[in-house]
Measured scan of single mutants.
Amino acid sequence: AEKTGIVNVSSSLNAREGASTSSKVIGSLSGNTKVTIVGEEGAFYKIEYKGSHGYVAKEYIKDIKDE
């Protein structure tokens, strides 16, 4: 099942092309942005936001229960 997560940073969080800190940054998400978690790979979540996919470090995403 898809989960919703909240970007848990004070400034912004980089979204990357792949599940690695050396992957190209494809965008950034500001704190408290809601994202859909579609998968996980190592220390990263694969997320969907406004129709695009990217990878973000798990430690900066807070899971919330689907309402």
Rank of each mutant, 00 (worst) to 15 (best):
Y55I: 01
I61C: 04
F44P: 00
N8H: 10
V7E: 02
K62V: 13
A1S: 13
I26H: 02
A1Q: 12
L13T: 09
V25R: 05
Y60D: 08
K3H: 08
K46G: 01
L13G: 03
T33I: 06
I64C: 10
I64S: 05
A19W: 05
T33W: 08
D63V: 15
D66L: 13
I64Y: 08
A15P: 04
D63E: 13
A15G: 03
H53P: 04
I47L: 01
S52T: 12
A57S: 09
S23R: 04
K62Q: 09
G42W: 02
G51V: 02
G18S: 14
G51L: 04
L13N: 01
K34Q: 08
N14M: 14
G31F: 13
G39D: 06
I64N: 05
V9M: 07
I37E: 00
T21C: 15
V56N: 00
G27F: 15
K34V: 13
T21I: 14
I47E: 00
T4H: 09
I47C: 05
G39F: 03
E17R: 06
S22W: 07
G27D: 02
S22H: 11
K34C: 12
S20D: 11
F44A: 00
G18A: 14
D66W: 15
Y45W: 12
A19F: 05
V25F: 06
I37C: 05
K46H: 04
L29V: 08
Y55V: 00
S28A: 10
G39K: 02
I26R: 02
N8D: 09
I6L: 08
Y60H: 09
K24M: 08
N32F: 12
S22K: 11
K50P: 02
E40V: 06
A19P: 15
V9S: 12
K3L: 10
F44H: 02
F44K: 01
S22E: 12
S28K: 12
Y60Q: 05
K62L: 11
T4W: 13
Y55W: 12
F44R: 01
G18T: 12
T4D: 03
S28D: 05
T21K: 11
L13W: 03
N32M: 11
I47M: 01
Y55M: 00
V7I: 10
G39C: 07
V35C: 05
V35N: 01
V35W: 04
N8S: 11
S10A: 12
V35K: 01
Y49C: 07
G5E: 02
S10P: 11
A43Y: 07
T33A: 08
R16T: 10
G31N: 15
K65S: 13
G18P: 02
L13S: 02
I37M: 01
K58S: 03
T36V: 14
K58I: 05
G51F: 05
E67R: 12
E59N: 08
S20N: 10
S52Q: 12
G51I: 02
K34H: 08
V38R: 03
T36L: 10
K58T: 02
K58R: 07
I47T: 03
G51A: 05
N32H: 10
S11R: 11
I37Q: 00
G18K: 13
I61E: 00
H53W: 15
E59C: 13
Y55P: 00
T21W: 15
D63Y: 12
L29P: 01
S20Y: 08
I6D: 02
D63L: 15
K46T: 03
E67F: 12
V7K: 03
K58G: 01
H53E: 06
K34S: 06
I61S: 01
D66K: 09
K62G: 10
A57N: 08
G39A: 07
D66E: 12
D63N: 09
A15K: 02
G54M: 14
N14G: 07
E48L: 15
D66R: 09
A43P: 10
G42C: 07
S20A: 07
S30G: 09
G42H: 03
S23G: 04
S28V: 14
Y45H: 02
L13P: 06
E67K: 13
A15M: 15
H53G: 04
K3G: 05
E48R: 13
K62P: 02
I37Y: 01
S20V: 04
K65R: 12
V7L: 06
V56L: 04
S22Y: 08
T21D: 13
S52H: 10
T36H: 10
T33F: 07
G51E: 06
E48G: 02
K58Q: 04
D66V: 14
F44W: 14
G18E: 12
S22L: 11
A1N: 12
K58L: 03
S28F: 12
V38G: 00
D63P: 10
I26W: 03
S20R: 05
E2A: 15
K50T: 04
I26T: 03
V38E: 03
F44S: 01
